[in-house]
């Protein structure tokens, strides 16, 4: 989004139509967008983000304007992945992804401290192994 807007900043001079209007509107919109994406959204996202692993289930809440709660019981977990992107390695973070038989029933816990992510994954894998049932 920001990239598209930024590209639009260099609208050629000799374009007809609403071009003079764009010449000042586009940079302003871009600046506002950057402000929201960099300055505001991460704070809101971080504030709403919650995750929980209980005896029975894994539960997350994400989103800032629209929220999503995802709940998966331990007994239906199929695989647990821990991934570390380049930036995540720089900051010592890792993400946990909990997969089930459903393509939509994936719980992702983003950006945990690496040790914590490792512990969560190991714990879930071990418990899923024990309680897995034959329903799916």
């Amino acid at each position: 989004m920001a990239v598209v807007v930024a590209l639009l900043v260099w609208v050629p001079d000799d374009l007809g139509g609403p071009e003079p209007f764009l010449r000042w509107a586009v940079p302003i919109v871009t600046a506002l967008d950057v402000l929201v994406v960099v300055g505001i959204r991460p704070w809101f996202k971080h504030r709403t983000y919650r995750w929980e692993v209980t005896a029975e289930a894994v539960h997350t809440r994400t989103g800032w304007l629209s929220r999503t709660w995802t709940l998966v019981p331990v007994s239906r977990i199929q695989t647990v992945d821990v991934t570390r992107g380049l930036l995540q390695q720089v900051f010592g973070l890792a993400s946990v992804a909990v997969y089930t038989a459903s393509s939509q029933g994936t719980v992702r816990i983003w950006h945990l401290e690496h040790g914590m992510a490792q512990r969560v994954a190991e714990d879930l894998t071990a418990r899923a192994e024990r309680t897995r049932d034959a329903a799916t």
Binding site: R76, A101, S102, G105
Partner: peptide, 16 residues
């Protein structure tokens, strides 16, 4: 009932 492997609840700002 046994088919369910998880739940997802989505709520946009308007829905809220």
């Amino acid at each position: 009932r046994r088919a369910v492997v998880g739940w997802q609840v989505k709520q946009s700002w308007f829905q809220r």
